[in-house]
Write a protein that binds this DNA or RNA. Structure first.
Lengths: 356, 356
DNA sequence: CTGAAAGCGCTTACAG
DNA sequence: CTGAAAGCGCTTACAG
């Protein structure tokens, strides 16, 4: 009988890796050999400290350090099904609204030893769903920021693995949203205090969940302050959309306007100024979100700040709680983050013609 | 003899997963059963089409579709060591300079069936190295955008797996950088054509590789156009840093200034305007990068556009070529992307006092 | 072209 | 507390 042939079909890659830095990647078997224990003991020592005697623990730790051991995440993921990874899908990676959300999620993820995987839907519900499914295969859970897909798709995903939604409420799925009331209330009261009587809201996309909330908040705040609220539709929530809506805003006779978002507000302000109007002397403009660059304008934009970073961080915390079995108390509620008015130069008292 | 006991230690997770959506996750074994072939044939059909007869291929494809099969990326990664994942580390996730880089990398990654994993170094070389090592464990390769760590650390990483650097040149490591010459040349010629004689460069961080390149380009462009080039140091490359440097800029007597980046340019413009100066009538200001918001200012900022999106896309393409064994031709060279002047309102002809 | 088998590097229920 | 063993779901060299 000859020696048994050892197949090592998966080894060509390993063979390529070996020479890379002289010592290749150590495995728990290498550690076991050095420490003189069984590989399963090494596994226990490394993955759940406390289940192993202090002495062996140290032996193993030292061996691991000596060999410069790094766990192989795939090998770990295969039997457990967990990857310590969570996904975040945003509608548009170049939209500043999402920057702080990304950072917030990233930061709390890293703090809790989770890695963030980011994808973008390019504002398409179909792309979003594809990306989500793809992520579901590898990530432990998912955060959807301002998702475009419909509630049923979101619920279907949530049936598979934990999902947290930002900027939207979906029945049965936990969510984190900015509570617009406080910020809008402050904005409207500030305008009222400056003598404005009729103020306009420039709405966002018709299907936007958030735009509807903001309009509601606006209406009720105006009612409360006894101001006349008028509504103007925009074509798209961008700087360009803001420019296009300027005529309509003017024709309402409103002396102050709250825009669905900062981009609209900035475009509107640019167009009005180009037409010779003075901001805020002739018209006050208030944005929404306090995105990066909101203070680049002249005058800098007054805006209702959305706590986007906190939303991202809150969503991540929520998701990780779910993954780690905490927070069973209120797994499906909505977490509300407070908004606040950031008073800058684009809003103020109306000046009579003679004062200008 | 009793029935052999079957240990299934790794199954509690699977058991938890099963009920989730009624049918659990199908494996190649399930497909094999349905299609009536061996699992290894399924594997071949799914991972390298063409190695299997057309008939079996179809059989397998249909079974996979019917079972709604999704590969398990971890199971695939374990024997092959590949994950179809690449990492991108940026210094600051809220710095708009990186937005387009991220998007560019993301887009070409998705196109080539790779997933982007994003991390942030928070401007710290140490954090950056930690994040990089961590990513190296799971990703197939790495892109470093404006890395803060030193050349040796980068080379050490590159010894392990393919690495591509953006916005910096590191000997022995492939890189993608904007070629500043064309854009700066255009900017300086434009200023010269508008009658400026002495122009200032507001430098970025002393250790910044890019700032040094931009200053060099500025100097030689000025020499070519026979303009006097003066240099002003800034404390930090932010809007605030721009404000602080205004006095120094004024004291040089320059009538135009090119700033290391748009943030500095915007801060500088705000401070000068606040001091009563007219831009561009009394002083022209040109930024660098064309970040989001550069056109929010009044006047909108003239700037040298860096093709950041293309840099991200180019770096990703380069990395994936490396991973897929292409591009052996020039594995270590520098890929240069062209810059260009974006002429907006903040630069122009100097007006004599009487004309203002 | 296809089957049978070994192996990737971990984790964990089962016995001591 | 620790060892021996099975299993996670794939891939691929080896034989037909």
């Amino acid at each position: 009988m000859t020696e048994p042939k050892i197949h090592s079909p998966a080894t060509p890659e390993a063979a390529k890796k070996q020479p890379r830095d002289g010592k290749g990647n150590a495995t728990i078997y290498d550690i076991a050999k050095v420490a003189g224990v069984n590989p399963s003991t090494v596994s226990r020592a490394l993955s759940k400290p406390g289940r192993v005697s202090a002495k062996t623990q140290k032996l193993i730790q030292d061996a691991a350090a000596e060999l410069n051991y790094q766990v192989n995440p795939f090998a770990r993921a295969l039997p457990t099904g967990r990857t310590n990874t969570f996904g975040l899908i945003v509608a548009d990676i170049t939209n500043p609204t999402f920057f702080d959300i990304i950072r917030g999620a990233q930061t709390t993820g890293t703090l809790r030893d989770y890695t963030l995987v980011l994808a973008e839907s390019a504002e398409s519900a179909a792309t979003e769903l594809t990306a989500a499914r793809r992520m579901m295969a590898t990530a432990d859970g998912l955060i959807l920021a301002s998702p475009r897909m419909d509630d049923d798709d979101i619920r279907a995903l949530a049936r598979d693995k934990p999902v947290v939604v930002i900027n939207r409420e979906v029945e049965g799925v936990p969510s984190v949203i900015p509570d617009v009331r406080k910020g809008i209330g402050e904005a409207v009261r500030s305008l009222a205090a400056n003598g404005h009587k009729r103020i306009a809201f420039v709405a966002g996309p018709a299907q936007s969940w958030m735009s509807a909330r903001r309009w509601e908040g606006f209406e009720s705040a105006c009612e409360w302050s006894r101001l006349e609220a008028v509504r103007v539709e925009s074509t798209k929530p961008t700087v360009d959309g803001g420019r296009q809506v300027a005529r309509d805003v003017l024709s309402t006779g409103a002396t102050a306007v709250l825009a669905y978002n900062d981009l609209l507000a900035i475009g509107l302000m640019q167009e009005l100024q180009a037409g010779g109007m003075a901001v805020p002397d002739q018209i006050s403009i208030v944005g929404f979100d306090d995105i990066f660059g909101a203070d680049f304008t002249t005058p800098p934009l007054t805006t209702v700040r959305s706590p986007l970073g906190e939303c991202g961080a809150g969503a991540a915390a929520r998701l990780l709680d779910l993954l780690q079995g905490k927070g069973n108390a209120e797994p499906e509620g909505t977490l509300q983050m407070e908004t606040e008015l950031v008073l800058r130069g684009s809003s103020g008292r109306l000046l009579a013609a003679g004062q200008r």
